[in-house]
Design a protein around this nucleic acid. Structure first.
Lengths: 187, 187
DNA sequence: GTTGTCGTGTGACCTATATCAAAAAATGAA
DNA sequence: TTCATTTTTTGATATAGGTCACACGACAAC
């Protein structure tokens, strides 16, 4: 495997250390429709997507699926509070395509943090990216019209409307599929 | 100063190191209404609130204030993407009460990360808390009725409705003050 | 082929919430 | 205290978007 440069930036690892770092990541393959973690369980890994696409969502009180964010190639995804505190999550993470990813378990992250100063810095960078992805998707969601939010998404993440069904996009935007359908008809 | 135990958990620092750690934090006092950072500038610090209350918000295209999240005592707040990448932010952070806080600059955080393994672990814990605060406030905002969202907020963060004006709560919930006022009249 | 499933589109109707406007209440300064 | 400013409430009306119901097209399985 290879972590993107934004993670190892400024941190020079000897070949042995690099090999050791990568040995903590487990390569996994999933089929479209499978889950990385589900509500009611503890999310025990951080996932780095090599190929494919994941969606994090939860159910509202009224039972509707609400998509919180997506993660694409070269991005990390996890239920961070669950991962960190080892508590039960209420988030589900579904793969929307056949996906290849690298998983880093809580235990191994803790090892990385403890074992070596450079590894701890890398752990910090990984968490930075997770935070960034969440902040990114959170932005500009409230208080605009549905059309504005849709246009913002297509502009900022053009890949997503191409690879994700309209239902999931609608649930991310906080509107119904019907409204999204009508809204697209107007464009 | 003293950082909360959730930050220094499991990390034993000698008194000298602890003193060194705290020397990186600068104690600052702000008056109600002042800003920690503003859109169009780079956010150059992580702020740890000792006493007081801050609100992070941005302006929608139509010029409305949209509150993203709040930070109370013993919590951290920053515009993380701006802080980390040293880019211009579009977020404003306003103090809603007279506030005493400790600021850690980007440069000093980088120093902490580099200088010492234990300090790097502490930096990781700080970032964990920032992430947690954001994730926390993001949850359960889409696709519920305004009343459900308000009740969720009052239950999860009862301090906030007590200390924050209705306008700011409304802008956090993504509704107008009028709607929030009517909704409260019904309860 | 036929059938089933899944994603999307369209129509009719309804309700939650926005908007505009203006009156009360609360807060703070002189 | 009094006056000015800010915040909250209330009312009347308009609208974005929800709900329900059903039709259409694309695939996959048989």
């Amino acid at each position: 495997m290879e972590l993107p440069k934004y993670i190892t930036n400024n941190i020079k690892l000897s070949p042995q250390k690099e090999a050791e770092l990568y040995s903590y990541f487990e390569k996994l393959k999933f089929k479209k429709g499978e889950f990385l973690y589900e509500q009611g369980s503890v999310c025990r890994s951080i996932f780095f997507i090599k190929e494919g696409l994941a969606r994090a969502f939860y159910y509202s009180d009224s039972g509707k699926e609400i998509t919180g964010w997506f993660a694409l190639e070269n991005e990390f995804i996890t239920a961070f509070d669950s991962f960190y505190y080892k508590t039960v999550t209420n988030i589900n993470c579904e793969l929307l395509e056949d996906t290849i990813l690298y998983a880093l378990s809580t235990a191994d992250l803790e090892l990385l943090l403890e074992k070596d100063h450079d590894f701890a810095k890398i752990a910090f960078n990984i968490l930075s990216q997770i935070t960034m992805n969440i902040v990114e998707f959170m932005g500009t969601l409230k208080f605009q019209t549905a059309k504005e939010r849709y246009l913002f998404l297509t502009e900022k993440h053009p890949q997503i409307p191409q690879r994700v069904t309209l239902q999931h996009i609608a649930s991310y935007l906080g509107i119904t599929r019907e409204t999204l359908s009508r809204l697209r008809a107007e464009l």
